[in-house]
Nucleic acid binder design. Structure first.
Lengths: 156, 156
DNA sequence: CTCGGTGCAAAAGTTTTGCAATATG
DNA sequence: CATATTGCAAAACTTTTGCACCGAG
C-alpha cells in the first residue's frame, strides 16, 4: 500500500505536482475503499478523519487532478454525482461494472474483454481507442434470488 | 417519422400517460436531432421554437418520463449534464459510442457486440443483464489525420 | 368535477471559482 | 522570494420540487 503511494508520488512529481498531505490523505481513502466507488462527498467525509481541516474544494481539486493523470477514474453511474475509483497498477483500462438496478450494488469485473473489439474499431472506423467503459445494468444474484423466493411464496 | 410518434403515443397510452403537445414537441426535437446527443438545455431551446411557452421543468419531466419508459436513453458522458437520445425501434439495447477526446465528436455504433458477454455474465456471476453501456474514448479518424499531418510538417 | 400535466419560481444538490492566507522548496 | 496549494465562501450549474392553475375526459 505504501508502495502504491510511492509510485503515485513519482507520477505526480513527474508532471510537476506535489504530493501534499491533503492529496495523500485523499489517496489513502481511495486506497482503503477501493471497492466502494465513493462519491466526492463520501471521500470528503472520510478524508476529514485523517485531515480534519481539509476543505471540500480541495478534495474536488485533488480528485480532478488525479483523474486527469489517470490515477483515479471518475465514473458517472447516473445518480447525480460522479464517483471515484483508484486505478490499479496492472489495470491500464477501466474495469467493467455490473450495476444492480434493484439494490444499487456495483460489482467489478477486472477482466478486459474488449481487446478484439478495440482492434475492430481501429480497423473499421479509423478510431484510436485510448480507453473504454463498459457497464451492465440488471439484477444481481442476491436480488434475483429474493425475487424468485417471493414468487414461490406467491404461488404456494 | 410520424409513424414513430404514433408508436410512441401507443407506448405512452399503454402505461396510462398522454402524449401532450409539450411531450410531442420534445419527442420531435429528439427525432430531428437523432445523432446529436442533446443535453436538457439544448432540448429546451429547440423545443421552445415549436412550443414557446414550455417551461424547462416540463422538458426535464418529459425526458425523465420518456427515459423511464425506455423510449429515450439518458446518458452521461462526464461533462456535468445528462444527454438524451431517442432509442430506435429495432434497437432494444443502448448503442455504443466512440467519443473523441480531441474534438468531442460522438460516433455511434449500432451493432450489438455484447451478447456473448452477457451470456457469460449470466453464467459466471448469476447476474441478469437488462441493459448495457459501452463507450470508447480515443482519437477519431479526422483528429488522427490532422495529427499525422502536423507531425509530417514538423519533420520536413 | 377530477386529476394528470404544466409553468413558474424557489430549492436542492453538485461542482467550480475568486481570493487571501499558507506552505514549500 | 516565487510559486503551487489550500480553505472558505460565494457563485455557477444542473436538476428537482411545491404549488397554483389549466384542460381534457
Amino acid at each position: 500500500m505504501d508502495e502504491n503511494i510511492g509510485r503515485i508520488n513519482r507520477q505526480l512529481l513527474n508532471k510537476g505536482y506535489k504530493l501534499t498531505p491533503q492529496r495523500e490523505a485523499t489517496l489513502r481513502v481511495l486506497l482503503e475503499n477501493e471497492r466502494d466507488h465513493l462519491n466526492a462527498e463520501e471521500v470528503f467525509m472520510l478524508v476529514k478523519d485523517k485531515y480534519p481541516n481539509i476543505g471540500l474544494a480541495t478534495v474536488y481539486r485533488s480528485l480532478e487532478l488525479l483523474s486527469e493523470l489517470h490515477i483515479v477514474e471518475k465514473i458517472n453511474f447516473g445518480d447525480g454525482g460522479a464517483r471515484f475509483d483508484l486505478r490499479s497498477e496492472d489495470q491500464p483500462h477501466m474495469h467493467h461494472h455490473l450495476i444492480c438496478t434493484r439494490c444499487g450494488a456495483v460489482e467489478e469485473i477486472k477482466d478486459d474483454w474488449l481487446m478484439p473489439m478495440e482492434n475492430r474499431i481501429e480497423r473499421e472506423f479509423g478510431f484510436t481507442v485510448l480507453d473504454h467503459r463498459l457497464d451492465f445494468q440488471g439484477i444481481c444474484k442476491e436480488c434475483g434470488a429474493k425475487e424468485r423466493e417471493k414468487d414461490c411464496k406467491a404461488v404456494s
